[in-house]
Design a protein around this nucleic acid. Structure first.
Length: 452
DNA sequence: CGCGTTTGACCGGCGC
DNA sequence: GCGCCGGTCAAACGCG
């Protein structure tokens, strides 16, 4: 009964995202949702015939009784599953509270950190401290103290403290090669340690003022979040890939190193929508269209636009969470392969040389004959990308990754990709969970409609 | 006439 | 300070 499974999964996602609700309400909502799903399923199975679960009404056929028995058994199973998930939520909340207290402690002694940084040259600053500062900027300054699900920055702050950062120089070189980096950016990377190059390039292009680094870094981070970009490479003969949004061209320039002009578009679906995109053909392969999105929509998106918006939004979340950008993607690019993506080593890459944090989704893979290596839908790609992040979040919280997690992901991937609408909703839900819920005031309207 | 596109001018950041 | 470059503006233009 995949239908029920899907609905329950989404409800759990919403359950996560509405964590501020009191527990009693959460439980009530879950129970009510379960009942609703059973009723809905009964209606579907019986073609609208009146069936009731709890009053023992007579059933006209044995088949229907059997179906009801099966559904009740399934309901029981779901109750068990829900109970397990509730326990996981409690664990997450407890872990978050613990982490939050530690962050508070760290935040109250910025001067000592600042002194550490100020005593040496910028280049000699320990990478751990530097990254910690950068990531601290991710943590919203107005974050409520209690009961709120952790922002990604909160996670990563602890994550980077506890692990020595390694770096894959080959990945960086590849980024430099493929990116539109200027010489200046490359020089910066040469002078700094690689991880500093990545983070300082995005968050601290000017010399940091260590005596007020928290505020500076936070504001810079917020600025960078707004400017974070998602680049999508796709084969297209037309001048633009269809993404469901309405765009107005406001400029065209010849970019250095590319004989093809770069076009600039802004979203016209909402008044004053800040979302912009650049469209340019790849210099090496003219059939490849590179579309770069920047900004967040401030208006509801039509269904046709949600898929792409969800994809780019999730990719951005992945990027901004830091978990993929610095530790997984750069240090261990093979993690993408662990997401059961046969072609994923070229799927999502990060540019350390770009002036803004940019993630590139490469959808130009040739569609193989092998069904198992078919070209995947964006939702499928995002789901595959997200699964290792979710697993990582479990591990980060000191929670054992559920044994059946990998199998569940595989099964869910198959089920979810059969339903594009559900996939889009799921991606949006997951996006809100794994961190980057900086979608502030327009979050309600902006259902999964964030580009970058 | 309204709307979208084109295109040269302009601005700011950055490196030298 | 100068030049390069990416990005944006806005007047001119074209189309339905």
């Amino acid at each position: 009964m995949s239908f029920n499974g899907k609905r329950l999964l989404v409800d759990e996602m919403e359950f996560f995202s509405h964590k501020k609700t009191k527990n009693v309400h959460q439980h009530y909502d879950v129970e009510r949702t379960e009942r609703h799903h059973v009723d809905t399923s009964l209606d579907l199975l019986t073609g609208g015939n009146k069936l009731t679960v709890d009053d023992g009404a007579s059933y006209t056929t044995d088949n229907k009784r059997n179906e009801l028995d099966a559904l009740l058994a399934e309901l029981h199973q779901m109750n068990v599953e829900n109970q397990r998930l509730r326990e996981m939520v409690n664990q997450v909340n407890n872990s978050y509270n613990s982490l939050h207290m530690q962050i508070k402690t760290l935040a109250h002694r910025p001067q000592s950190r600042a002194d550490d940084g100020a005593t040496g040259e910028k280049g000699s600053m320990s990478s751990g401290a530097f990254i910690e500062m950068s990531l601290a900027g991710f943590a919203p300054k107005d974050e409520p103290s209690e009961g709120k699900f952790p922002k990604s920055g909160s996670f990563e702050l602890m994550e980077f403290k506890s692990q020595q950062i390694n770096f894959n120089e080959d990945q960086l070189k590849a980024d430099n090669k493929m990116g539109s980096g200027k010489n200046g950016a490359k020089a910066r990377i040469r002078e700094e340690s690689p991880e500093q190059a990545t983070f300082s390039g995005w968050f601290s292009r000017k010399a940091p003022k260590f005596n007020s680094f928290m505020d500076d870094q936070a504001s810079e981070a917020i600025s960078m979040i707004k400017k974070a970009r998602v680049s999508v490479r796709a084969h297209s003969e037309s001048s633009m890939i269809p993404d469901g949004c309405q765009w107005r061209k406001y400029g065209q320039k010849m970019a250095k190193g590319n004989p093809c002009p770069r076009s600039y578009y802004r979203c016209t679906m909402g008044t004053g929508c800040p979302v912009r995109k650049q469209v340019q053909r790849c210099a090496q392969d003219r059939s490849v269209l590179i579309t770069t999105y920047e900004g967040q929509h401030n208006h509801p998106l039509p269904p046709a636009a949600k898929a792409m918006a969800s994809t780019t939004s999730a990719a951005t979340s992945m990027l901004l969470s830091g978990s993929m950008s610095s530790k997984d993607c750069l240090m261990n690019p093979n993690i993408l392969e662990s997401a059961s993506l046969p072609c994923s080593q070229n799927l999502a890459t990060l540019s350390a040389s770009a002036p803004f944090p940019t993630i590139t989704l490469d959808l130009t893979e040739k569609a193989p004959n092998n069904a198992s290596q078919r070209q995947r839908a964006p939702q499928e790609i995002v789901l595959s990308l997200l699964s290792p992040i979710l697993a990582q979040k479990f591990n980060l919280l000191g929670m054992e990754t559920p044994n059946a997690f990998a199998d569940t992901v595989s099964a869910a991937t198959a089920a979810i990709t059969a339903d594009p609408n559900f996939a889009a909703a799921l991606v949006a839900a997951v996006t809100s969970i794994i961190g980057y819920s900086h979608s502030n005031s327009n979050g309600a309207n902006n259902t999964s409609g964030n580009h970058a």
